[in-house]
């Protein structure tokens, strides 16, 4: 499982294990699974993160503003200024 954290300046919104997250990067969407290589990417404004808790099933969509994604050995961290429209 991939450890996924979503943080805003006001609080740690989420910290959980998920199957996959599709991140809308500035240079294109990319999916992050467990054991992904280290990566830093900015995120397009007003785009949606797709969080897949299970391998099958519909993703949970989350709109974020002013985002930045960091993938390291410990998992995926998304820094967002705001959540929602």
């Amino acid at each position: 499982m991939l450890h996924f954290e979503l943080v805003t300046p006001e609080k740690l919104v989420r910290s959980e294990d998920v199957y996959m997250v599709v991140v809308p990067g500035t240079e294109g969407d990319f999916g992050v699974l467990e054991q992904h290589m280290p990566l830093m990417s900015s995120i397009r404004d007003d785009a949606e993160l797709a969080i897949y808790r299970e391998e099958k099933g519909a993703p949970e969509m989350l709109r974020i503003q002013g985002g930045f994604a960091e993938v390291s050995e410990t998992g995926l961290t998304v820094l967002a200024e705001r959540i929602g429209g």
């Binding site: 290589m37 830093m40 990417s41 900015s42 002013g66 200024e81």
Partner: peptide, 27 residues
Amino acid sequence: AGAVEYEPDEETILADLLPRNLAVQIY
């Protein structure tokens, strides 16, 4: 962080993050 891939490149990310960093410091 050894080999980290940057998307886009370091400078662009920095340019994006630095103003945000200032806001965070002030916050």
